[in-house]
């Protein structure tokens, strides 16, 4: 798993840690039941405080992506990484469909953002 954080960005470092882990899940690099590297180890490698990494892990726990077990570290919970990967797959499919219909990048993005700004539909 690759964690990249850039202190020059305005995004909090813990958010950046969380999004690195999410990316690894989406790419299938981190699968269900697999353990995340120890926060202390990641923090040492990155040269940041351990609590920054732990806060990142807590974001993922709150999203239901991982479970934090005292003394056992962070474990990827069963279903979510796959559905996340599936979501990415759908996004790729959307882009492919839009391209085949001749929509430009700006039009495709506008379509997505109009969906996001409209009230949630089931």
């Amino acid at each position: 798993m690759l964690v990249r954080i850039d202190p020059s960005l305005s995004t909090p470092l813990s958010d950046q840690v969380a999004s690195s882990v999410r990316r690894a899940m989406a790419e299938g690099d981190l699968q269900q039941g697999q353990r995340l590297p120890a926060a202390r180890e990641v923090a040492r490698s990155l040269g940041v405080n351990m609590h920054t990494v732990l806060r990142g892990y807590q974001i993922l726990r709150d999203e239901g992506l991982i479970e934090l077990r005292p003394g056992r570290g962070a474990v990827v919970t069963a279903v979510t990484p796959q559905s996340r990967a599936a979501l990415f797959e759908k996004a790729r499919q959307l882009v492919a469909d839009a391209r085949s219909m001749g929509l430009s990048e700006a039009e495709t993005l506008a379509l997505v953002s109009s969906c996001m700004s409209s009230p949630a539909q089931v």
Binding site: M1, R4, D6, P7, P37, V42
Partner: peptide, 14 residues
């Protein structure tokens, strides 16, 4: 591509 201040960590159980 890494920006100058970017911090990275890659690890894997092998």
């Amino acid at each position: 591509n890494l920006s100058p201040g970017e911090k990275v960590a890659w690890n894997r159980t092998a």
